[in-house]
Design a protein around this nucleic acid. Structure first.
Lengths: 168, 168
DNA sequence: TTATCTTAGGGGCATATGCCCATTATGCAG
DNA sequence: CTGCATAATGGGCATATGCCCCTAAGATAA
């Protein structure tokens, strides 16, 4: 179990070989991307049997939990803290597989409302079971409360307006 | 200044509008990717004048600090906690711009040694100056010691063997 | 020495990510 | 009502990321 503090440095858990070339990168974005890559691999491996990737499950989950009317691209992108264009690209495979549908808006012809299909909801439920394995595995190693704390910190970074761009 | 604890929830810093659709994602990988996307945008925006992206600067930095002989693809990938193939792809633009060169190995014809060119080192120095702006900006908001603590945690995740895959 | 096994990279494929620009649709000023 | 500013998407381009498989080259067993 790790402490969510710098007390246990990563080097303590590393092999001699990898420790040799280890360099504590001072860049916050780089370390964030490094950890993101690794953990995404862990979750993607767990999700592999159902044919979903982490990003795709995140989209389906957001839709599955959406309480109001099906969101527009912009609304969904905002909730996921993802670029609008990126979300548009990411929806393509989900649409192709028939997991989501993009419907027209009655009040504004510019908007497309994104909705989960029943097939998509079934796939989502299937994926969640696999996701839980990876989630449990990570939190077993990292610590459950430490993980919750980390998520809160990361969500803060993701949704913070003053960090969203250089404009201020 | 944020506390590196869940005491200050992200919602405390959010607009009413975005708070409405805010859903505290329980997935550690997803929140990691969300924060990663946002912060990468911040750093990339700062680096934009020099024509480098965060990932590219990370590669050049690792090479600039490399103490031993120029690393092989596998060694560099390991240090950056990135997939070997991914690093191969990422090196292509850097090679095209003449910032790095891939030399042959004298002892093992399979290996390619990656070295920074003088042009690449100059570009790296230029980028570091821009990088510092983004780094300072983030740490001004997030807190310097909190950032250091977060980096240590993230590096631990990135380099932890038991989290690298589902095999155990 | 030869057959086999392992390792290092490269190429192809697919998704992920975001920028810019074009198109279309609203909204609003006049 | 017309013309312009604005908003929502889509398409194109480029990089990021990782998987799989292939080939070449070193290492090892027979």
């Amino acid at each position: 179990m790790w402490a969510y503090t710098p007390l246990l440095l990563p080097s303590a858990t590393m092999t001699t070989d990898s420790k040799a070339n280890f360099r504590l990168s001072p860049c916050n974005a780089t370390t964030l991307r490094m950890a993101s890559r690794r953990l995404t691999q862990l979750y993607d491996a767990a999700l592999e049997p159902c044919g979903l990737r982490s990003t795709q499950l995140a989209i389906l989950s957001e839709l599955a939990h959406w309480s109001a009317d099906p969101p527009t691209l912009a609304e969904l992108a905002d909730a996921l803290a993802i670029d609008r264009s990126s979300l548009g690209h990411n929806l393509r495979p989900l649409e192709r597989e028939g997991w989501v549908v993009l419907g027209e808006s009655a009040v504004d012809a510019r908007r497309r409302h994104i909705a989960l299909t029943s097939k998509g909801r079934a796939k989502w439920r299937e994926a969640v079971r696999l996701w839980r394995v990876a989630q449990e595995r990570f939190e077993y190693v990292f610590g459950r409360s430490e993980a919750a704390s980390l998520r809160a910190t990361l969500l803060g970074i993701a949704h913070h307006e003053r960090l969203a761009s250089l404009k201020d």
